[in-house]
Simulated assay, not measured.
Amino acid sequence: MAGSRAEKKEQTRQALLDTTIELVDDRSFGSISLREVARGAGIVPTAFYRHFASMEDLGVTLVEDAMRVLRGALREARRDLAGRGMPTARDSLAILLKKVKSDEKQFRFLVREQHGGVTEVRRAIGTELRLLSRELAIDLARTPALVAWEAEDLEVAADLIVTIMMTAVAELLDGDGRESSERSLVARAEKQLVMVFLGMAQWRTNG
Rank of each mutant, 00 (worst) to 15 (best):
K9V: 04
V69K: 05
V37R: 01
G83R: 12
E190Y: 01
L96C: 06
G40T: 10
L136N: 10
T127R: 14
D65H: 08
V118R: 12
D26I: 01
A77N: 03
S92G: 04
Q114V: 00
V44N: 08
T46M: 08
L34G: 03
M195N: 12
D25G: 11
L132R: 07
R178L: 10
F48N: 07
G207Y: 10
R130T: 11
L140F: 15
A53P: 00
E150V: 11
V100A: 07
T205H: 10
H51L: 06
A47N: 12
M55I: 11
A38V: 11
T88E: 14
H51R: 05
K8E: 12
D91H: 09
M166W: 02
R5M: 13
T163W: 02
W149Y: 15
Q14C: 01
D176G: 03
R183E: 14
A94Q: 14
S54R: 06
A53C: 02
T61A: 15
G83I: 01
M195L: 15
L58Y: 04
I43A: 06
R68L: 07
F48C: 07
E36R: 08
F48L: 09
R90N: 04
L160D: 06
L62N: 05
M67R: 04
A41R: 05
S181M: 02
A6E: 13
L154W: 08
L140T: 05
M67T: 07
F107R: 04
D25I: 02
T88F: 00
V156C: 01
T127D: 13
A141W: 06
S133L: 05
R35L: 03
E182G: 00
E104W: 06
A41Y: 04
Q202G: 01
E179Y: 01
R112S: 11
L160A: 15
T19I: 08
I161M: 12
G177L: 08
I32Q: 02
E76W: 00
A170F: 04
A73D: 09
G40I: 11
R79L: 07
P45I: 11
S54E: 05
R178W: 02
L132T: 15
V186R: 00
T143E: 12
A66V: 04
L110Q: 07
V63F: 04
E7C: 01
S181C: 05
G42P: 10
